[in-house]
């Protein structure tokens, strides 16, 4: 097997941009109780995001690395979960990975949860917002009739 050696990213500084980091934290709910995260970098300076399991062991559940041509997601044992050109497409990759076997249980549960949550956010929340808008619009008229 030949290794994929991406060319250095033009702006690979070893740091996540604040936007990317916020996106990753939100994606994995990495700032909630029971989970935490850490960031690091490869020898070549590409940033890595580690999603950690519960204390005291805090084993790495998932690792997201940003390489020149996209993001690589691996579980804590180094098994490749997916490659995605953008974090926005992560939901699709996560869904695929969660369905496949051979990954660590924790990684699959995390990915499945991510997929469900993102689907809810994408599909259901706009519906709720629409209902709220209708309610706000018609409530005064309904109230006037009562």
């Amino acid at each position: 097997m030949s290794i994929v050696e991406f060319p250095r990213h033009a702006c690979a500084s070893g740091d996540w941009s604040p936007g990317e980091l916020q996106q990753l934290i939100a994606l994995f709910r990495a700032d909630t109780a029971g989970t935490s995260y850490a960031v690091g970098a490869t020898e070549r300076g590409e940033p890595q995001f580690y999603l950690l399991g519960p204390a005291p062991e805090q084993d790495c559940v998932l690792c997201v690395s940003r390489l020149a041509q996209g993001y690589v997601v691996e579980d804590g044992a180094g098994r490749l979960i997916g490659e995605t050109p953008s974090l926005d497409r992560f939901a699709v990759e996560a869904a695929r990975a969660a369905m496949r076997g051979g990954r660590s249980f924790m990684a699959r549960v995390t990915l499945a949860w991510c997929t469900i949550r993102l689907a809810i956010e994408e599909k259901l929340e706009p519906m709720f917002e629409e209902s709220q808008e209708l309610l706000v619009r018609f409530a005064p008229q309904v109230a006037a009739l009562v």
């Binding site: 290794i3 690091g40 490869t42 020898e43 890595q48 790495c60 690395s65 180094g78």
Partner: peptide, 24 residues
Amino acid sequence: QIELAQRLGLKYYTFISQVENGFG
């Protein structure tokens, strides 16, 4: 890290970094 990943037959070298940073 790339050369070690190559010797181990890994597609990416990112896992080497994960282990060396203490997260794997």
